[in-house]
Design a binder for these strands. Structure first.
Lengths: 157, 157
DNA sequence: TGGGTTTCGTTTCCCATGAAACGAAGCGTC
DNA sequence: GACGCTTCGTTTCATGGGAAACGAAACCCA
């Protein structure tokens, strides 16, 4: 959008938001089309595929999603037979969640696909640039997380 | 979250999303509290404050928001007396939208506030890092935008 | 052992968002 | 100037997602 130099366009949080949005859009449509998964489900699958079996609480921590979102995603995946629950002997309130064979096989297809897509999206960046983006985002995220942690400490007091 | 090294956590689009989300959250709550504005309204105000008067269509272009979102934001701002419509002689379907005196005065308070907040959030980065981040995000955004432009060309064919 | 508190998962409710359908005005062409 | 086609804005509808309320299980401590 040449010629558009409002202050909003220069505003870093705004740029972050629209870029993230654009990227998410591409990714979501890709694996929405191929696997019928939406973002939350995809994230749960991704984590479970790596971690083996987890409770919903653990999934919340790993995905940083809301517990309701995790719950819904799990329900979806269970209905589609990609995920199964087994009793948790250590805690009767929760279950162990793990991918079924079908789930594992989908998971095995997802990563190459995801890798491929991100490769295409971020091919405009050098490896060094990507690494620096990763680090920078991390710094910012940590800063905000710390900030909020300190906030809630204050709330308690 | 030490020890959490799933592949999802290393996935760049994921990091982008959670970081953007975290930042947006801080900003939104800040000017939600002080001015009773939500993101879309804030963006519209920001652009109008810079540009003088625009139609909704122009606002869509400038903010990259959906036309429905722009419409709703304008309606809100109008109800609160921050924005006024005047007839558009050149095109009877649309109106010129501009900030009222109240709107202008809010706008004048918003930017210092916004600047301050982002300063706090991004204080963990050096000036060079911020510039780098800006450029990198821009590259990625452009890449995706181009990609989608090419997509829709193909759709037409 | 029993009452109070916390935690996990689930349900319910509400709001924000975007897609699609729509009227109204402009544009172009004949 | 009448007809279709496009564009602007608005409304309606469906969906996603989070906050809050809830039941059930676990924990705690006397």
């Amino acid at each position: 959008m040449p010629g558009t130099t409002t202050r909003l366009a220069d505003f870093l949080p705004y740029r972050l938001a629209i870029t993230s949005n654009a990227v998410s859009g591409v990714i979501a449509s890709e694996y929405g089309d191929r696997f019928g998964l939406r973002v939350p489900e995809w994230r749960v699958m991704a984590v479970l595929g790596d971690a083996g079996r987890l409770t919903q609480r653990q999934l919340v921590r790993a995905t940083l999603m809301d517990k309701v979102a995790v719950n819904r995603a799990c329900k979806q995946l269970e209905e589609r037979g990609m995920l199964a629950r087994s009793p948790n002997a250590a805690d009767g309130r929760s279950h162990h969640l793990a991918l079924t064979d079908d789930g594992v096989s989908i998971h095995a297809q997802i990563w190459p696909q995801a890798f491929d897509t991100t490769e295409r999206i971020f091919s405009c960046l050098s490896e060094a640039e990507r690494e620096m983006l990763r680090r920078t985002l991390d710094k910012v995220f940590e800063a905000v997380a710390d900030r909020e942690a300190r906030q809630s400490e204050n709330d308690e007091a």
